[in-house]
């Protein structure tokens, strides 16, 4: 693959793997949510995320060539080839942690996607246009839930604060840009994520204040997922489950 194709491929994997892995995690809730409306909402969120994955990884497979498909990328890569941020592969924890993770991710997407709708790459612009409508709804819902639970009972407040403390060290990775990002900026394909931080902090700060939650002091960030340098131990187990049929029965059509 030519260098610029390789950069584009990496960018698309980052987008697609985030939605794939988070969609998978959210889908684990199916049938186990605290209330029926949440079962429906979580399934709906997972469905949107997997739908977005098909577009992002579908385009990635096209860029890769060799007649690869989105399914090949989802089901036949190993941990080291995944480019999602670490945040999305963390286990669900309790409902509060799941919704906090969702909000921290949705807030980022809600800032990134409107910019991608203006991408010089028309296919990326079209995917972002579609995904942006879904994400606008996701962030509204996850923010409302974070506020409702943060400013709910003493217990719900404590659980949401614990969730924020647990997840905050995984936020910084979203903004850690590298040469893939520089290449995207140079080609007018995508913004440098580092430039989105101020807007993100404003949005997240406002919601968390309303939720009566305190952002941890430390700005330490766990990194490595989006560059592929490292993942958490959790991703391997997730893939073991997700990829099992494709791995156990290679070449079958489903």
């Amino acid at each position: 693959m030519a260098a610029d194709r390789e950069m584009l491929f990496q960018f698309l994997l980052r987008m697609g793997d985030n939605s794939l892995i988070l969609g998978h995690r959210v889908s684990e809730w199916c049938g186990h949510a605290p209330v029926l409306e949440e079962d429906i909402a979580l399934a709906n969120t997972a469905l949107d995320l997997i739908g977005q994955t098909q577009f992002w990884l579908g385009y990635a497979a096209e860029v890769q060539g060799d007649n690869k498909t989105a399914d090949d990328l989802a089901f036949l890569r190993d941990v080291w080839d995944f480019r999602n941020i670490l945040l999305v592969e963390l286990p669900n924890g309790d409902f509060g942690q799941t919704l906090m993770r969702q909000f921290l991710f949705d807030a980022f997407q809600s800032i990134l996607l409107p910019r991608l709708t203006k991408s010089s790459d028309s296919q990326i612009a079209a995917i972002a246009e579609k995904a942006n409508k879904e994400v606008a709804y996701h962030v509204e819902r996850s923010a409302d839930t974070v506020v409702g639970l943060g400013d709910g009972t003493e217990e719900s407040h404590a659980r949401m604060q614990a969730a924020l403390d647990r997840l905050w060290p995984y936020v910084g990775e979203m903004f850690a840009s590298d040469d893939v990002d520089s290449a995207m900026v140079a080609a007018g394909i995508a913004p440098d994520p580092a430039t989105l931080r101020a807007e993100y902090d404003a949005l997240v700060g406002q919601v968390l204040t309303e939720a009566t939650l305190s952002i941890p002091d430390s700005d330490f960030a766990h990194k490595g997922g989006r560059t592929g340098k490292t993942h958490t131990e959790h991703l391997g187990h997730l893939l073991t489950q997700m990829q099992w049929l494709q791995r156990a029965y290679p070449g079958a059509t489903w």
Partner: peptide
Amino acid sequence: GAWVRDGL
């Protein structure tokens, strides 16, 4: 889910 319903 009790804490979630109570919180909301």
